[in-house]
């Protein structure tokens, strides 16, 4: 039974990684940049929900909505203030800026909320479900997280394949120059992508803090890096790839924690990434990039 317990734990953690990785992969696919501040938007989402529930006494659902709205606005602001002026700049400049934004958010959080960890009250009110005479426990958080990840991935897939804005995003992702010559507003499309990514980060932040209830200004860093790894693992730019990468990463992490070594679990996760990239450099579901001769 402990195997099943661990599997559910892995699926649950993996679903959080997947939701974060979806944000990374969308932004990378469309804006062609690695938004290293994405993990810190998760942290802001967590704090927003925490403040709404703790200080204002609002119900969890409202807390999540407030976190999503604040993060969406924050995502759009970060894009327009920090990244948009660098649209034509070398990718290294954009990358360094993203790291700068990441530190900025962490330090702003440090100023506002101090370095004392806050204890986050879970937004999920479901009681853990006991199965197989108490030997298998499924927490409410795990159920909600897994369902949320599946719903989000389905919604994103429909959004990008069926809607006008989704098609514009795919067009911008493939050929920005040609897309704008077809009348597509590149800035608006990229803003929209950041808005979606940041809203997902808020959801992920609330779910992550519900499962691991300590909230500090650096809470977002590690899940951010892991989710980035997951996105690369699955094939960056691919929506199902981010989902698959996230879930596999979560499962690998929990299993190595349980059966190999708690200290080595992160090392094992990254070792698996390196092996996958050696065998398939574009990630599990990544598209082959044909070099033009």
């Amino acid at each position: 039974m402990s195997v099943l317990n661990n599997l559910i734990g892995g699926l649950s953690l993996g679903s959080v990684y997947a939701i974060i990785a979806l944000g990374y992969t969308m932004v990378y696919g469309i804006a062609k940049m690695l938004n290293f501040a994405h993990g810190d938007v998760i942290m802001i989402g967590g704090y927003m929900c925490f403040c709404a529930m703790q200080y204002l006494g609002l119900p969890p659902v409202v807390g999540i909505l407030i976190a999503m709205v604040v993060c969406t606005v924050l995502g759009v602001l970060i894009e327009s203030l920090a990244y948009r002026p660098l649209r034509g700049a070398p990718s290294l400049a954009v990358l360094i800026t993203a790291i700068g934004v990441s530190y900025y958010l962490q330090n702003a959080a440090l100023l506002i909320w101090s370095s004392n960890p806050k204890s986050f009250t879970s937004v999920v009110a479901l009681e853990p479900i006991q199965l197989a005479a108490g030997r298998l426990t499924v927490t409410g958080e795990a159920i909600v997280t897994i369902i949320a990840a599946v719903v989000i991935m389905t919604a994103l897939t429909i959004f990008t394949s069926r809607t006008k804005m989704g098609k514009a995003m795919r067009a911008v992702s493939e050929d920005r120059g040609a897309a704008q010559l077809m009348g597509i507003n590149i800035n608006r499309t990229i803003s929209m992508t950041f808005a979606i990514g940041a809203a997902l980060a808020a959801i992920a932040g609330v779910l992550y803090c519900s499962a691991y209830p300590t909230l500090s200004p650096t809470t977002g860093s590690l899940p951010g890096i892991k989710a980035f790894t997951a996105a690369v693992f699955g094939g960056i730019g691919s929506i199902p790839g981010a989902m698959l990468g996230g879930i596999l990463l979560g499962i690998i992490e929990i299993f190595s924690n349980a059966y190999i070594s708690t200290q080595l679990s992160d090392a094992i996760v990254f070792a698996v990434l390196i092996i996958v990239l050696l065998i398939k450099p574009t990630g599990l579901l990544g598209k082959k990039i044909r070099e033009k001769v």
Binding site: K164, K167, A168, R170, A171, E174, D175, G177, A178, A179, M182, G183, I184, K287
Partner: peptide, 21 residues
């Protein structure tokens, strides 16, 4: 040629129609 290669023929034309949907 700079088509959106991974999108369907239909979607390529729909991108052109973007402004009026």
């Amino acid at each position: 040629i700079r088509l959106f290669n991974n999108m369907s023929v239909m979607d390529n034309v729909l991108v052109g129609l973007h402004h009026e949907m």
